[in-house]
Amino acid sequence: MSGVSQLALLFIGAALINNILLTRFIGLCPFFGVSSNMETSIGMSLSVIFVMVMASTATWVVWEFILDPLGVGEFLYIPAFILIIASLVQFVEMYLRKASPVLYRAMGIYLPLITTNCAVLATATEAAKPGFFKMNIALGASLSLGEALVYTLGVSVGFGFALITFAALRERLELVPAPRLMKGTPIAFITAGLLSLSYLGMSGWFGL
């Protein structure tokens, strides 16, 4: 894959058509956990974009230059990638606290939570060894670093978009006269189902 239009397709495919939250069920914990408040959803989305891009860069480099050449990737990739992500997030948190207090206040509390977010692990693994998670059928056998970054950016922007949409919906749901047992999470799940149905309508666009 090459060329600007290919990269744009890669981005749209990752962000909308194969939306990680609503069509792949990856990263649902923050989706239901923080979406009851608009402000926290925005903070969470920004942090996810930031961490995912850094994590994918790191796992891509490690896979390409260490794990794959040594031939140990098949059974070491799970511990290796999760450790890379965990330590990376820890370093980023420490660096931000020191270097940019404003940024730290905006996303500091979300950073530790993101460590154990399956969306980050899934995307970083997919960027390093494409096809494994079958998250985007248009992905080739292997991605260059640039393509991996565009892909990751697409996934994380799609994550943020879905999260913020859902947060806006949930703020309205607070006022809905639902049956007593349905109040809160069950009705939120039904809303998520309908939202996911609308994302499903996009499957097949541009042959993605």
Binding site: L22, F25, T185, P186, F189, I190, A192, G193, S196, L200
Partner: peptide
């Protein structure tokens, strides 16, 4: 079998568990 179905069925399972 598709993604929306999972959300819908699970919502009713939570209701059942609460009940």
């Amino acid at each position: 079998l598709l993604f929306p179905g999972a959300f819908l069925v699970f919502a009713f399972m939570i209701v059942g568990a609460r009940w």
